[in-house]
Design a protein around this nucleic acid. Structure first.
Ligand SMILES: NC(=O)c1ccc[n+]([C@@H]2O[C@H](COP(=O)([O-])OP(=O)(O)OC[C@H]3O[C@@H](n4cnc5c(N)ncnc54)[C@H](O)[C@@H]3O)[C@@H](O)[C@H]2O)c1
Ligand SMILES: NC(=O)c1ccc[n+]([C@@H]2O[C@H](COP(=O)([O-])OP(=O)(O)OC[C@H]3O[C@@H](n4cnc5c(N)ncnc54)[C@H](O)[C@@H]3O)[C@@H](O)[C@H]2O)c1
Lengths: 212, 212
DNA sequence: CAATTTATGTGAAAGGAGTCACAAAATTGA
DNA sequence: TCAATTTTGTGACTCCTTTCACATAAATTG
């Protein structure tokens, strides 16, 4: 298949397929058809095949896909075959719950440093919940520590008013990826990427659907 | 304008506009043009106008939109002019951080009950963080309490393996809206709505963009 | 080994969503 | 009062995404 721009929606679905395949693999299932995978992920079977076709031919006609093989291929496509080193900025309520989120690790995402404006205040939140606590630094050491620990992704869990400032520091520290939980639009220069996780936007969506 | 199906993306953007308008209103700004609002929300100006046009005519040609008036209209459209009564199921790391998330309240979303499989174990997580703690019930009382407290939305923050079971109980209790944080696809009958908040899907997306 | 079955990969068609460009309406100022 | 200015609301166009439908290829069976 000749080159085409890949839709964002395709990438989101690949992530879903990946989770399903992981589960199937754990259940000892060897082979899966696009129809079965589609059903499990609640999408159209042709959609599954087309999504995969952007990246190559992974199936065998008349058979389907080898679960493990396809899973590996999708992980390679998504870049989740390598370990991603992350920093968390803002060790508050949400931040400390993310610090103890075990699923990140399972998925090859690792928080290797945390930052706050007041480390002594928040230190209890970290150690109280984990066997091996993540080190918490003062925010003004972010550039230095980010370099040293080869951080590639920053998670922003500060109050909204601080988010853009923190994003600027991350840019300064050449942390190219940002996952932003603070409900404000932050902007970064070309070459950097921000993705948002806005709970209330999804809630608004739900509220809209429920009232119509 | 004659009736058309309204895109999901439009609803998501309305939610964004709403946040911006709220901020503008707090700053004492009275009038805003589609171009200004668009710039702030990082979208196209025609997009702003088209999104609003699905629901009526809110602007004045040659002038723009009255900030407060438009904000009220959008809140009415989204259904966020009323208070939504929510229950949280699974008072763990993430759940207890949501319980103390003040922004929900500001946005007219209110958690009026929490449920867990082991209330005594989790009770500390709630009261330790809040002035007026949310009551935690055993999960098997969900139907009874949901009716009594007129709950309309359920937040699922249990382990993934429990999510579908919890969703079934919410359906049983006629809670029509579900916001699911557990990284599995849950299904509900016609007439019910599930929206997902999957952190790792967004991370996967970020990882993909960073590795290409 | 040929016929049958099964399920992929993909071109073509349909369906949605976003952008452009301009007529229409309100305001301002001379 | 009327021309100039501003900015909305929207039809038409473009672009992107999803679905359909079928030729193609692998496997199986008699
Ligand atoms: N709590 C939730 O469940 C939840 C849910 C969705 C979104 N959010 C958003 O996530 C963010 C954090 O929420 P929270 O409830 O954890 O707030 P919080 O007040 O508990 O935590 C914020 C933390 O950020 C630190 N901080 C403040 N300024 C900083 C700076 N400049 N640099 C580094 N650290 C700084 C504070 O010391 C504090 O520890 C907010 O933007 C909130 O809107 C929270
Ligand atoms: N911790 C995070 O930051 C984070 C981030 C993203 C997603 N998630 C997801 O959110 C969910 C919760 O994560 P967590 O880290 O808070 O886990 P956790 O183990 O800390 O909390 C789970 C809670 O659910 C309760 N529970 C278990 N089964 C139940 C049932 N049948 N009914 C009611 N309650 C039940 C447990 O008693 C526990 O209190 C998981 O699905 C996780 O994948 C968590």
């Amino acid at each position: 298949m000749k080159y085409q721009k890949i839709p964002e929606a395709t990438i989101r679905r690949l992530s879903r397929y990946s989770r399903c395949l992981e589960e199937m693999n754990e259940n000892g299932e060897k082979v899966v058809s696009s129809a079965q995978l589609a059903k499990k992920c609640i999408v159209n079977a042709a959609q599954v095949r087309k999504d995969l076709a952007y990246f190559g031919e992974f199936g065998i006609r008349g058979v389907g896909y080898y679960v493990k093989d396809l899973h590996n291929n999708i992980k390679k496509i998504l870049g989740s075959d390598k370990e991603w080193r992350m920093a968390l900025i803002g060790v508050g309520n949400l931040g400390s719950s993310l610090l103890s989120y075990k699923d990140f690790l399972k998925q090859n995402y690792k928080i290797v440093a945390a930052f706050d404006i007041d480390p002594p205040k928040v230190i209890g939140r970290v150690s109280e919940k984990l066997g091996k606590p993540v080190e918490v630094f003062h925010i003004n050491r972010i550039k230095e520590v980010a370099k040293e620990r080869r951080i590639e992704i920053g998670l922003i869990t500060t109050p909204p008013s601080e988010a853009q400032g923190v994003a600027n520091m991350l840019v300064e520290a050449e942390v190219r990826g940002i996952l932003n939980f603070a409900p404000v639009q932050v902007t970064v220069p070309e070459g950097f990427v921000v993705k948002d996780v806005f709970f209330t936007t999804v809630l608004d969506n739900l509220a809209y659907l429920l009232s119509n």
